[in-house]
């Protein structure tokens, strides 16, 4: 071996390496389409914007709509719920980030940064537990709402408060707030 190492590389060595590199590049270029075909396709991406009519929702009521195959919770909160959410000291929260895609990534998890409108009446969030993806309970009247009066995930016991922030349990993050805006007083666009 050591004898061979000291030799000048021959033309054969060069051809060997060049052929190998060419074959590797060729294999990689064919492998990528096979890997990429599994990514979300055009139909999945096309469904990424929806408009929701909210004119029928009274205070204290919620609806669940489907967006990108996931449930989105839209809740028109009561004054009591808003007060409960506003009273909380942000520094005491397990996740201090707003997780709001309408704001900058480092926004803090205040109630203002969670609600959609200035009156803080409307809360729009992805209804997927940030632990392992179950849909938390709390949308229907008879549901368990957890220790903080918001939502409760029955799978592994995560409790969310009235602003959808994680307070107790294995989940590490607040419920995500998707990109959303009011088109007019009666319609919200999500995505």
């Amino acid at each position: 071996m050591s004898k061979k190492d000291t030799k000048e590389p021959s033309r054969r060595d060069f051809i060997f390496l060049a052929t190998g590199a060419f074959a590797a590049a060729g294999a990689a270029s064919v492998a990528w389409p096979i890997v990429d075909q599994m990514n979300p396709d055009a139909t999945a991406l096309a469904l990424s914007k929806i408009e929701v009519d909210i004119s029928q929702i009274e205070r204290g009521q919620s609806i669940t709509v489907k967006w990108r195959g996931k449930p989105v919770f839209i809740r028109r909160r009561t004054d009591e719920e808003i007060q409960m959410a506003s009273r909380v000291d942000v520094n005491s929260l397990p996740d201090g980030n707003a997780r709001n895609y309408n704001l900058t990534a480092d926004s803090s998890a205040t109630d203002e940064n969670r609600a959609l409108d200035d009156n803080k009446e409307w809360l729009v969030m992805v209804g997927v537990c940030t632990h392992l993806g179950c849909v938390p309970k709390g949308q229907s009247l008879g549901d368990a709402k957890g220790d903080y009066g918001g939502w409760y995930c029955p799978c592994h016991g995560s409790h969310y408060d009235t602003a959808g922030r994680i307070r107790k349990g294995p989940a590490a993050k607040n419920l995500d707030i998707p990109v959303a805006e009011f088109v007019n007083d009666n319609v919200i666009r999500i995505g």
Partner: peptide, 13 residues
Amino acid sequence: TEWLWGGFAVDNA
């Protein structure tokens, strides 16, 4: 996870 799903949630794909 989105690559595994072929979407934004478990679905047809």
